Simulated assay, not measured.
Amino acid sequence: MNTYSKILVVIDPELEQHPSLNKAVHLAKQYQAKLELFISDYDPLLATSYLFDAPSLERATQTLHNRHCKLLERMADSIRQQGIETTCDVRWQQRPADCILDKAEESGADLIVRCSHPNDGQDLPFSHTDWDLIREASVPLLLVKHQPWQASPKILVAIDPMHTRAESIKLEQKLLGEGTALAEKLSGEVHALHAFDPSKLEMHIEAGVIRFPDTPGHIRELHKAAFAETIKQSSIDPANQHLLEAVPEKGIVDFAKKNSYDITVMGAISRSAIERVLIGHTAEKILEKISSDLLIIKP
Results as ranks from 00 to 15, higher is better:
Met1Lys: 05
Met1Pro: 02
Tyr4Ile: 09
Ser5Asp: 10
Lys6Tyr: 09
Ile11Ala: 08
Pro13Ser: 11
Gln17Gly: 08
His18Thr: 11
Leu21Asp: 07
Lys23Phe: 10
His26Asn: 06
Ala28Trp: 11
Ala28Tyr: 12
Ala33Arg: 01
Lys34Arg: 04
Glu36Thr: 09
Asp41Lys: 00
Leu46Val: 05
Ser49Val: 03
Tyr50Ala: 09
Phe52Asn: 02
Arg59Gln: 12
Ala60Asp: 05
Leu64Lys: 13
His65Gly: 03
His65Asp: 08
Asn66Asp: 13
Asn66Phe: 14
Arg67Cys: 08
Leu71Ile: 05
Ile79Arg: 12
Gln82Ile: 08
Thr87Tyr: 07
Arg91His: 05
Gln93Glu: 07
Gln94Tyr: 07
Arg95Thr: 00
Asp102Arg: 00
Ala109Asp: 03
Leu111Tyr: 04
Val113Asn: 00
Cys115Tyr: 14
Asn119Pro: 00
Asp120Leu: 15
Ser127Arg: 09
His128Cys: 14
His128Ser: 15
Val139Asp: 10
Gln147Ser: 15
Pro148Lys: 15
Gln150Phe: 15
Ala151His: 14
Ser152Cys: 15
Val157Glu: 13
Val157Gln: 12
Pro161His: 13
Met162Ile: 15
Met162Tyr: 12
Thr164Asn: 11
Arg165Cys: 03
Arg165Asn: 08
Glu167Ile: 12
Ile169Trp: 06
Ile169Leu: 12
Ile169Phe: 08
Leu171Cys: 04
Lys174Pro: 00
Lys174Tyr: 11
Leu176Lys: 01
Gly179Ile: 06
Leu186Gln: 06
Gly188Ser: 02
Leu193Trp: 02
His194Tyr: 05
Leu201Ala: 10
Asp214Tyr: 14
Gly217Tyr: 07
Ile219Met: 10
Glu221Gln: 11
Lys224Ala: 07
Ala225Gln: 08
Phe227Val: 02
Ala228Trp: 02
Lys232Ala: 05
Ser235Met: 09
Asp237Lys: 13
Pro238Thr: 08
Ala239Tyr: 09
Asn240Tyr: 13
Gln241Arg: 09
Lys250Phe: 08
Asp254Thr: 02
Ala256Pro: 01
Lys258Trp: 04
Ser260Thr: 04
Ile263His: 07
Val265Cys: 09
Gly267Gln: 08
Ala268Leu: 06
Arg276Trp: 01
Ile279Arg: 00
Gly280Ser: 06
His281Phe: 10
Ala283Gln: 06
Glu284Lys: 08
Lys285Ser: 05
Lys285Asp: 02
Ile286Cys: 10
Glu288Met: 09
Asp293Gln: 10
Leu295His: 05
Leu295Gly: 06
Ile297Phe: 09
